[in-house]
Design a protein around this nucleic acid. Sequence first.
DNA 1: CTGAAAGCGCTTACAG
DNA 2: CTGAAAGCGCTTACAG
Lengths: 328, 328
Amino acid sequence: MKKITIKDVAARAGVSVSAVSHVLNGYSDMSATTVEKVQTAAKDLGYVANSAARQLSSKKSKTIALILNEINVARGVAMPLEIISGVIDYLDKTDYEFVFYATNTEKQAHKTLRQFCDEHNISGVIIQGLRVTDPYYHELEHFTLPTVAIDMNIRNKRIGTVSIDNETAAFEVTERLQASGYHQILFVNGGRKAAVSHERESGYRKSVTKPSVIFADFREQVAFDLIFALFSAEKKPIYDAIFAASDLMAIGCLKALKKLDLASQIAVVGFDDITLTSYFTPTITTVHQDVKTIAESAAKDVIEHIEKGIIKHTIVGYEIVVRESAAI
Amino acid sequence: MKKITIKDVAARAGVSVSAVSHVLNGYSDMSATTVEKVQTAAKDLGYVANSAARQLSSKKSKTIALILNEINVARGVAMPLEIISGVIDYLDKTDYEFVFYATNTEKQAHKTLRQFCDEHNISGVIIQGLRVTDPYYHELEHFTLPTVAIDMNIRNKRIGTVSIDNETAAFEVTERLQASGYHQILFVNGGRKAAVSHERESGYRKSVTKPSVIFADFREQVAFDLIFALFSAEKKPIYDAIFAASDLMAIGCLKALKKLDLASQIAVVGFDDITLTSYFTPTITTVHQDVKTIAESAAKDVIEHIEKGIIKHTIVGYEIVVRESAAI
DNA sequence: CTGAAAGCGCTTACAG
DNA sequence: CTGAAAGCGCTTACAG
């Protein structure tokens, strides 16, 4: 089964290769008969242009790279998948191609972002999951290709961003906890390598007078251990509520509290609204962010950057979802 | 920031373009000094070969396409993500490129698999999630490119396959239920469009004498409704156990049973071992399949097909994980 | 409105 | 061991 090329189409239509190219790329100055002949020939043959050849010959490629860092750190967190499908769904409506690239710290050391983009003729990138210590994070500070970063803050005016307003969301959660009578709120943060952690903590700090922050590395088990140790200590902690920077850590906290039979006394709030939150017992009060919308906005924004040079900083709405773990 | 090409490397190294190409592609018949010069020049310039050009000029491309159908049907099911990272992890150790393509019934109607592969110079494909009614499913019956299908049965000797032994696993679960004293087992199947459902049901049927099968379309809510209706009917059903063909449906069943306060009396077993199973109350007894291993095997097998012409039908091990919902 | 021709950045026989 | 040249399948000025 030989691949069929533009020459085959030209031969069957009885026109030149350039005529075929013109027609298929929608140039308007073609006679109706030529258009007709080319289109039926292409259809009969099931012709599809070879993308490598098209990229090579054409100056401007039309491909957006979605670059996700460390996609499989935590089981049960489907965020990468939602980003992927959000971006794909948006790009499907355009004539941009989608390319997916999963990276990690090691790969970043082998090949720069720039190199990757040159290699694959990338015209725009959407990137997520970088920690401030990652090589690409630094590279982005001087990066010139149209780029949109999800959930990240880059010191580079030319990088677009999309995320919810993490600080305000965290502030609002903390305020509502206090309005509901909780005044000793422990903040369980992940770590400060992720921009979002920093912002969430900052929102919390803006609301309370005497902040207490501990770090659980975004891991359920670490959160469990920390909370279990804290609440089983001889000197009981004063906290009446826990606000965790991620749902998985909130689950860790709740498991510890359940084991100590304290789950009904301490309010727990998570962040992200992963699927688990509504299946866990108790169901978990959390901040819902619509990842699909975030991803689609990112796709929309890179294309706008590419085509119109507009750099956007998009804030997507969030929603506090009240469930059993905290009535706020 | 101009892209740097092979010419730039040649110029800087003071050799011809072909010499650069030879060195960078590891041809052995180059003088040590040339190799040296080329390598430092390439390194200094941060040169990476343009993949489009490479693909065009070279006969054989080295890219594997992972094609996933309907990736975002069910929240909480991270299987597509595990397949993606399994395939990527394996390919990273080879010199094959990874290309990801998410499809659905509509896209399949617009562009054939063959067209997609020609367009992108694909040398091998890994495919998952097709239903027997999908256009690509039919196309695969006469497909000639090296292909490995995950969890699918294609009537085409040339298509490799990877999956667990679904029939045996289902048989074993049913046997163990009976050995544990459950003799009225209801099988909640998804639908027969997926090969796995068919096999799982068949394993169940091999074990029981009087099979009872209902269909819940792989959906939690449908399973819930069905079970709730069944067990709240005037005439109580005789079932003492439910075996669902997917964990999500098992959860739907358990939610219905919990609502009717029957969860402790009826054993429930799921299938797949998604993350939710260990967080739900009760935790769910299920058949664990190691998706990562399945994905890696698929990658390994396509490459073996491409390079040695060997077509494999790989069976990956499964494990019955006993949790609270059924002590078997 | 249409075609011949150059060129995109590589790889690969082929000479030497 | 090394280089000149053809060619991969397209697109895009450029003539006409």
